[in-house]
Design a binder for these strands. Structure first.
Lengths: 147, 147
DNA sequence: AAACAAATGTAGCATTTACTACATTATGCA
DNA sequence: TGCATAATGTAGTAAATGCTACATTTGTTT
């Protein structure tokens, strides 16, 4: 007897839920672009240039892994480099880096305001940041302003 | 001249940052276990049994993808099944499902309290939940209680 | 300038996650 | 019972991310 209402509920849940999973998977594909762009911008600021080795070290991956990802991101237009040269960001990469950095800082201060210790917050923010929509970011910003 | 202090700062940042990236990658490997366990528990509750096809539909992936992941999760002890039979959770899987569900609900109500619309919150929570440490969850729980 | 060390690049392999196309097994109804 | 359809399962492919081992290039230091 609950079948009719159940059916509707389940259908809604299903499409909503599978949409959520799909969005999460799509976002996962943007993670490298965001992480690399932000990191490269940081390294350039700190040391003047970003080399494959620096990037690999900061990410905690082998230089081979970094190298391959850097090539893919070059194809996708986030950065450019040539053999044995440092890595530079394109305008697109710079934009992504700037946005990622702002988002990272906002989320970090948000977590700190909740009382989360800095070391824990840093790790959690790194995992979380790629999955927060711009809309949600707006609500977090508003919360930070009024509290 | 800023070299000495810079060096210390950079070293700290590097180890902290690469640790954060490594933790994020490790957590990514637990995502399937959590998503599948929680989803299977839901489906069993709703329909009495969880079949490969249901699971694939809810996740928005092909039944082949679901099937392969289910096999891996069986090897890892989260669930068990046999050809053409429904999927059942082990005690380990049930525990993961219960924890994931609680976490999901806590985060969802947290986002809603911040003012995020439900549809957006659902999607963001799905991406974010696997990357929130137990420690941070505690702070969020405290926030929910006092606000 | 030669030799050595550090940085970068290549080759080859493994895992996870995803797919399509096709094969087989179960099941329900005629 | 027996066929048709739905549900599962298999084969083969692709892309992203990770690794080690080895090769080459660059730069530094005698």
């Amino acid at each position: 007897m609950a079948n009719l209402t159940m059916k509707k509920t389940k259908t809604t849940d299903l499409s909503l839920r599978s949409k959520a999973f799909k969005t999460t998977r799509r976002r996962n594909n943007e993670v490298a672009a965001e992480d690399y762009s932000e990191l490269i911008a940081d390294i350039i600021e700190e040391r003047g240039e970003a080399r494959v080795g620096h990037i690999a070290d900061h990410l905690g991956v082998s230089h081979v892994t970094a190298l391959r990802t850097i090539r893919r991101l070059q194809e996708e237009g986030y950065l450019f480099t040539s053999p044995h040269k440092p890595v530079e960001l394109t305008a697109k990469g710079k934009k992504v880096a700037e946005f990622s950095k702002e988002r990272h800082e906002l989320l970090l201060s948000f977590f700190l305001k909740l009382g989360v210790p800095k070391k824990v917050a840093e790790v959690d923010v790194e995992g979380v940041e790629h999955h927060i929509s711009k809309e949600t970011l707006g609500y977090i910003r508003r919360f930070m302003e009024r509290c």
